[in-house]
Design a protein around this nucleic acid. Structure first.
Length: 341
DNA sequence: AATCCGTTCAACCGCCGTCGA
DNA sequence: TTCGACGGCGGTTGAACGGAT
């Protein structure tokens, strides 16, 4: 187990920091600044390695840190950003004033991840965390592009009208926006893989638009849906993964491919922005979450706050409905018990 | 009161990218 | 161009804590 070079030269203390050590570090940094971290321990009179000092300062002692639990708005923002950026905690934390990457990561792993149904129905909002893209070095094969069940926005609807038909939830403006966003993500993936995947029209093709315009909540996940028929392979794949009708969710990429095959879509590359590098993704993410950040910074903006709460409500309601395998339509959404940040 | 067990989160580890000699 | 120092990041660990039994 090799230690960082600065730790090898001297005997360093490890483990939890004592109040005395904290005091020394605070005193030194507020007086002189950290400069070169490797020299901080010696100059501050600490038996720690520079890296440990840096971590302690950044994650715990910095005066601008916001302590305490995460707000609904912050949780919503993390959810959204994670769907865009994957496990890039430092990037996510940049949009959360006073929060550190470590804090966001811990919050995700201990609170949010846990509350997402563990039976694989839907690990998170559509995420890049298991996609090998220029933005995320994590993985693997094209098979892992998006796991079956990964997309809450594409579900099989088993209500009275459309049994065995695949439906997009379409009526919630917030989710509509989210779905639109997925289109762009898919296009980003397409671009990265030299257009091997379909290209999707933007705006969304008419057939994917709401079939009616019901109230924002009432029919979010069960009505106003578009029937799409599955081939035998998809049916088999779904039936292997889950036996609960409402929980049937399929790979959105496959769905889109099938959609294109069925409707002979013409490629409309020019209609979508080309987001192929890190900066583009950052810009995209920044634009996408601007309203959230604004509201966090200026919580008195009630409209913004409402929008965020509606957004997280949508997300949480869906998670709740999926995990409970209930086909009941949620008419008066509230954050389910235990989902408070 | 003692023990067990699950959760949280501070801290560590190892890897990677950058920079300067 | 190479190499070492360093900062930054994400994944993981384990101590501390709290609730259940």
């Amino acid at each position: 187990m090799g230690h960082h070079s600065c730790c090898n030269k001297q005997k360093v203390k490890r483990g939890l920091w004592s109040p005395e050590e904290d005091e020394k570090l605070i005193k030194y940094i507020t007086t002189y600044g950290h400069g070169c971290w490797s020299s901080v321990p010696k100059l501050a009179g600490l038996q720690r390695c520079g890296k440990s000092c840096r971590l302690r300062w950044i994650n715990y002692l910095r005066p601008d840190l916001k302590r305490g639990s995460f707000s609904h708005q912050e949780a919503a923002l993390i959810l959204e950003l994670h769907s865009i950026l994957g496990n890039r905690w430092a990037q996510i934390a940049k949009h959360l004033p006073g929060r550190t990457d470590n804090e966001v990561k811990n919050f995700w792993n201990s609170t949010m991840k846990k509350k997402i149904p563990s039976h694989g129905i839907f690990p998170s909002f559509p995420t890049f965390s298991n996609i090998h893209t220029p933005y995320n070095k994590n993985i693997g094969s094209m098979e892992s592009l998006l796991p079956i069940n990964a997309n809450p926005n594409v579900i099989l609807n088993f209500n009275h009208h459309h049994e065995d038909q695949l439906c997009y939830p379409t009526s919630s403006p917030n989710l509509q926006g989210n779905f639109h966003q997925i289109d762009t993500k898919v296009d980003m993936i397409n671009n990265h893989y030299n257009g091997n995947f379909l290209h999707i029209q933007n705006p969304i093709p008419e057939i994917l638009q709401p079939m009616s315009n019901p109230s924002p909540y009432e029919d979010t996940w069960s009505l106003g849906c578009l029937p799409l028929h599955l081939n035998q392979n998809q049916e088999n794949q779904i039936s292997k993964s889950d036996t609960t009708p409402l929980n049937k969710i399929i790979n959105p990429i496959e769905l889109m491919e099938q959609y294109v095959q069925c409707h002979d879509l013409v490629e409309l590359e020019a209609t979508l922005p080309k987001l192929v590098n890190d900066q583009s993704l950052e810009d995209y993410a920044a634009a996408k979450i601007q309203s959230y950040t604004t509201s966090i910074t200026y919580p008195q903006d009630q409209n913004m706050e409402d929008n965020q709460l509606i957004y997280i409500n949508d997300a949480l309601i869906f998670m709740s409905s999926v995990s409970s395998s209930s086909s009941q339509v949620v008419k008066n959404p509230t954050i389910p018990l235990g989902w408070e940040p």
